[in-house]
Design a protein around this nucleic acid. Structure first.
Length: 507
RNA sequence: GCCGCUAUCGUCUAGGGGUUAGGACGGAUGGUUCUCAGCCAUCAAACCGGGGUUCGAAUCCCCGUAGCGGUACCA
């Protein structure tokens, strides 16, 4: 497999009897966005493909920003996508609890160990002091922004700080030997210890930090592979250093490239708002299959022929060795194409089910609306839906005649001049007459009657049809007009033709 | 500033010393039809730059450049 052979080898180093365990570890500080969904998907696919386990851990050590609401939104999004987890979240499991905020005593044990072995120390620097240190380091072109000055605090200094009431943080002492980082996707490298600084591992409020909790939990929860975004790449050596000192087993790492916006920046809640929220796509009438298929192809490919992958195929074919190294732009056009594809694979009944809530939301249908009729509407709409919410603009006129005539359409097909309008009125009148007299109001009869009229009177089919289409729907495009006519019914059609003629003669 | 990662059509990507550099989305054109969508056909569109290595480089190496990520008592 060419360039990826090295990676393949690395992922194959997993002992086959070892059950693969991966995790998704979101921080509940907002909704799940496209990038997070992809991280979840890659983890989930990797687990499913290798018959392993997918764990959902909630990294909520940031008390100030974490919310319960966010956590539940993440659950909803993940469940909608069908990325069910084997352990964790609201589900529990053998390594419970899975909320880091509930695992404090576990971390405390390790922190004590670190402190006692001299691998961590208290740091009394204030935020302001830290900032000054950083500024200084920057102007000195230093490779780190904290100089480790509290490593060797005298007991007098410590007492002094304590008497001032300062609450210390705990910092990890970084090693002075290079750290080797092996990454399944990115390969191996050695990190110069001069670039590693003594990270804060416990906040002054007593809450431990990500770099500590993450690697501890990965070990405690027997995680074999950490698959996460490359924004964590620089955290990895720090976490490895901590694990080494603690004697923890290391997972294998696989950093997946970022999902970017169309100007090449990382997708984030902060900059892109809920434009990138997974739940929003659900609300807009996207199908989870489309979303999954789309997101899977961001950074992963199978070969040069296949774009459409069912979930089962994804599970069968996905592996880390075909994940690329460079970021990928989120292209909504492609998502739309995929969504249309998956919608069109649904039968009429399933499509009707899917579309129902949108109609209901708009107050267009209620329990008395006939299912049979609705299905026929969906059938008439055919392959015109990109998302389910498209059903509203495309079918509103079936339920109400309270619509405006589109001015562009009016101008083009009803006529800009009085003369043309008169002609249109004449056609409409005759069409109304034809429809009035037609014996059976079904598609075949209506169609042949109309064609008979146009052809015998030397009227262009398009002109007649478009004139009537606007009268019936207000727009110049949509399903087959015969479908519309029959679905609307004779009375409604005649009524709308009357209304159109009134409009034409008054203007 | 410092550290790191990355680099094939506009976008997602295949390929990986010798290819007409392939596919898909999007775009354009034509066909089909009562319109639109769809479908079918066709077209335009790419190896970041410079040096090496080599008979031959988009592919390997080096150096640039650019973009991005990180640089928090966020994750």
């Amino acid at each position: 497999m060419g360039k990826n052979s090295e990676r393949t080898k690395m992922s194959d180093t997993v002992v086959p009897n070892d059950k693969i365990r991966v995790r998704m570890a979101p921080s509940p500080t907002g909704f799940l966005h496209i990038g997070g969904a992809r991280t979840a998907l890659f983890n989930w696919l990797f687990a499913k493909h290798h018959n392993g386990q997918f764990i959902l851990r909630i990294d909520d050590t940031d008390v100030a920003r974490s919310t319960d609401e966010s956590m539940h939104e993440i659950y909803t999004a993940l469940k909608w996508l069908g990325l069910e987890w084997d352990e964790g979240g609201d589900k529990g499991g053998p390594y419970a609890p899975y909320l880091q905020s509930e695992r404090k005593t576990i971390y405390e044990k390790y922190v004590t160990q670190l402190l006692e072995s001299g691998n961590a120390y208290y740091c009394y620097c204030s935020t302001e002091e830290l900032e000054a240190i950083r500024k200084e380091a920057r102007s000195n072109k230093s490779t780190r922004s904290y100089d480790g000055r509290c490593r060797h605090l005298s007991s007098e200094a410590t007492e002094q700080y304590m008497s001032e009431g300062r609450k210390p943080t705990v910092r990890i002492k970084m090693p002075d030997k290079p750290i080797r980082v092996d990454d399944i996707i990115l390969g191996s490298r050695n990190i110069d210890p001069a670039t590693l600084e003594d990270e804060v591992i416990v906040r002054s409020n007593g809450m431990p930090n990500y770099n500590l909790t993450s690697i501890i939990d990965d070990a405690e929860m027997q995680i074999t592979h950490v698959i996460r975004g490359t924004e964590h790449l620089n955290n990895t050596p720090k976490q490895i250093a901590i694990a080494n000192v603690l004697g923890l087993n290391l997972p294998q790492f696989a950093h997946i490239p970022l999902v970017l916006d169309d100007s090449g920046r990382k997708l984030s809640k902060r900059h892109h708002g809920d434009l990138v929220a997974v739940n929003r796509y659900r609300e807009q009438g996207y199908l989870p299959e489309a979303m999954l298929n789309f997101v899977a192809r961001l950074g992963w490919s199978y070969d040069d022929k296949q774009e459409i992958f069912s979930v089962a195929e994804l599970i069968e074919k996905f592996d880390l060795d075909r994940v690329g190294k460079s970021g990928s732009v989120f292209d909504i056009k492609k998502l739309e194409w995929l969504n249309a594809h998956y919608i069109n694979e649904l039968d009429v009944s399933a499509r009707t089910d899917a579309v129902m809530s949108f109609w209901e939301q708009e107050g267009l249908v209620d329990s008395s609306t006939k299912r049979d009729w609705l299905e026929k509407i969906v059938e008439a709409v055919g392959e015109r839906l990109t998302t389910f919410q498209d059903i509203i603009p495309q079918t509103r006129y079936f339920f109400t005649d309270d619509f405006e005539y589109e001015s562009k359409a009016v101008k083009k097909w009803w006529g800009g001049s009085d003369e043309k309008k008169e002609k249109t009125c004449e056609i409409l009148t005759n069409l109304g007459q034809v429809l009035q007299e037609v014996a059976e109001f079904d598609i075949e009869t209506v169609e042949s009657a109309i064609w008979k009229y146009t052809d015998e009177n030397d009227i262009k089919r398009v002109a007649a049809m478009q004139a009537m289409r606007i009268a019936l729907t207000g727009t110049s495009f949509g399903p087959s007009l015969f479908d519309i006519v029959v679905l609307l019914g004779r009375d409604e059609v005649l009524k709308r033709i009357q209304r159109a003629m009134a409009y034409l003669s008054h203007k």
